[in-house]
Design a protein around this nucleic acid. Structure first.
Length: 288
DNA sequence: ACTCAGGTATTAC
DNA sequence: GTAATACCTGAG
């Protein structure tokens, strides 16, 4: 594969830190010069911001411009989304100001499913470590420059991996879930290609929930952060629960707030943009 | 030693 | 349906 380069000029709503550290992805790492390098599908790309230019550099399976336009959701008008959401209330406005450079990535469905199964009751450094070891052991090697990178393993590549091997990689109790889900996807108990085409979000959600290790929160993350691209879902994790309770519900014990109360509030306030609203709120509450 | 972290599965009302 | 509890692991 040959190295390619692409320069994007004057792109609005595009900050590296906001995109890669808002919690949607696990395989992008910051370099000493402030650029980020990541692996997705068979691509390795480094991204650097210089003035008004965003410079993409790396090895790609296709034309780098196409790859990047798709992955970074460049065709979508985030300015419009943000101005719409900003009008809802001052909290939303503040959170958007903080994370104005967020874009929701179009991540591979399979990879997103497995990654978020691993994320359950886990912390980010460990999640990233597990995914890295998993890729290094079972994924395809990609060489760029003098360095080796590893693609996220395909379902086929994980077909014969045992629960014990997962345990050795540090998966913990998620080992069985990973094994079972991989089998379910391989034998098409859950057919990812069909899911990708299904229009009814609730039907897609129901299918995802069949997978081992996929509960409501993980299902919503998959719906939002993968190529399924559903902005109407509202993943509720500890941070979202916290921020929604602090701002609006004001229960003395945030753990006592019911999920349905948060969901109906989110739906009322943000409608079919709830997912992206959630992302600004999550990032703001977690980082600011 | 002990708590916590992007929850889920299981069990018991 | 809803509530309580166990669960790998490793960092702080």
């Amino acid at each position: 594969m040959q190295e390619q380069k692409y320069i994007l000029k004057n792109q609005d709503s595009f900050n590296l830190k906001d995109i890669f550290e808002c919690g949607q992805c696990f395989r992008w790492n910051i370099e000493k010069d402030g650029s980020y390098t990541g692996v997705f599908k068979g691509n390795v790309i480094n991204i650097k911001k210089e003035g008004n230019n965003i410079i993409f550099n790396g090895v790609c399976e296709g034309k780098i411009q196409d790859v990047v336009e798709d992955y970074f959701d460049l065709k979508r008008d985030y300015k419009k989304i943000k101005s719409k959401l900003s009008k809802i209330d001052s909290n939303m406005e503040k959170s958007i100001k903080y994370g104005e450079g967020i874009r929701i990535l179009n991540q591979d469905l399979w990879e997103t499913i497995i990654s978020f199964i691993i994320s359950a009751n886990n912390n980010i450094p460990r999640i990233k470590g597990i995914i890295e070891r998993l890729s290094k052991k079972y994924g395809k090697k990609i060489i760029w420059g003098n360095k080796e990178y590893y693609a996220f393993p395909t379902a086929k590549e994980l077909k014969n991996v045992t629960v014990e091997e997962y345990r050795k990689l540090g998966l913990g109790f998620r080992d069985v879930r990973l094994y079972e889900t991989t089998q379910m996807i391989l034998n098409k108990q859950v057919d990812l290609e069909k899911l990708q085409k299904e229009e009814d979000t609730q039907k897609v959600r129901q299918e995802l929930l069949k997978l081992s290790g996929v509960g409501p929160k993980v299902a919503d993350c998959i719906l939002l952060f993968s190529t399924l691209k559903r902005f109407e879902v509202f993943p509720i994790d500890v941070w979202v629960r916290r921020v929604m309770n602090d701002l609006y519900i004001k229960n003395e014990n945030e753990n006592k707030v019911s999920k349905n109360e948060i969901l109906s509030l989110a739906n009322k306030k943000y409608g079919n943009l709830a997912g992206i609203a959630q992302q600004y709120l999550f990032y703001w509450r977690r980082e600011a």
